[in-house]
Design a protein around this nucleic acid. Structure first.
Lengths: 153, 153
DNA sequence: TCAAACTAGATGCATTTGCATGTATCAGTG
DNA sequence: CACTGATACATGCAAATGCATCTAGTTTGA
């Protein structure tokens, strides 16, 4: 298969992950320190964002939990906070009495859009000067491929 | 400059970041649930790892803080915990009385190596099946380029 | 059909985190 | 050299997080 010793393959994978991880840290650092997240912590925004991207407008809590790096209980309480602020609504899932469907309220949708506009600008200011459009497309492709593969296994 | 409308450039940057972020979440999820991190939380391991990679064997707290996604105070207390477990040592920086140099103890070095071996295997099991060696090298290059650019600005 | 096993989500509680602030040291200016 | 402001790290305290567990609804299989 490989023309290289196994240790090199392992090493390359480790270095790749390390670089991906550090770049994520560096970018996230900048993003979360921006003024866009004074009103709402990044993790809470991320839930609003995820809901806003969802075609049906509703997601199960466990679906959301797959997207964010939070334990199930932490997500449950994060949603408590969002609900208390009137940004989201919990509904019992119609097909499964155990499940909870989450949806944005009007206020939640508005806040997501407001923060989102600024957030997207911040992202562009960090990413665009760093990588060409082609490089961004390639990075997008590679990370998506990685994510999809990891999600399966 | 660009042959595309500005909104497309912004959109591409945002999608690229989103994909990078989600892939990081997916991989980290798997990694931190592995048995390697029963003994020591990932963030604490990361500090040991960072120290182990450092040529001088010593790093200032603020240097470490650049690498991890933690507030200054959280890192300070994380180091408290590591110190209490005898895994690291604090020393006053010789050239700057305010600074603290952190170094691994023998026990800390041992634990880092033990966890590290397993951790690296776990990484390889996730990354190697997902991307070819060339793709990994490209992902490494792009994320490093992104990190370096973000670190400057 | 019904009990056992499983799944989704909520909750008690101890730990971790971050914000604001405190203390000590350093660097620059008159 | 004294003074002002900045930097490095520590700490009090409130909030967020995760583990273990609980409740309720669902699936399985004898």
């Amino acid at each position: 298969m490989s023309s290289q010793p196994a240790s090199s393959a392992v090493r390359l994978a480790a270095e790749t992950w390390e670089s991906l991880f550090r770049s994520q840290v560096a970018v996230m650092r900048k993003l979360q320190s921006g003024p866009a997240f004074k009103e709402l912590p990044v993790k809470e925004y991320d839930v609003l964002f995820t809901l806003s991207r969802c075609p049906s407008g509703q997601l199960r809590l466990n679906e959301i939990n797959d997207k964010v790096l939070l334990s199930q209980s932490s997500l449950s309480r994060l949603v408590d906070r969002l609900e208390k602020r009137g940004l989201v609504e919990r509904t019992t899932a119609p097909d499964d009495g155990r499940g909870v469907l989450l949806s944005l309220t009007e206020a939640g949708s508005e806040l997501q859009k407001t923060i989102g506009r600024e957030h997207v600008r911040d992202i562009a200011h960090l990413v665009a000067p760093a990588l060409t459009a082609d490089e961004q497309r390639e990075l997008l492709r590679l990370t998506e491929k990685l994510r999809a593969s990891v999600a399966e296994h």
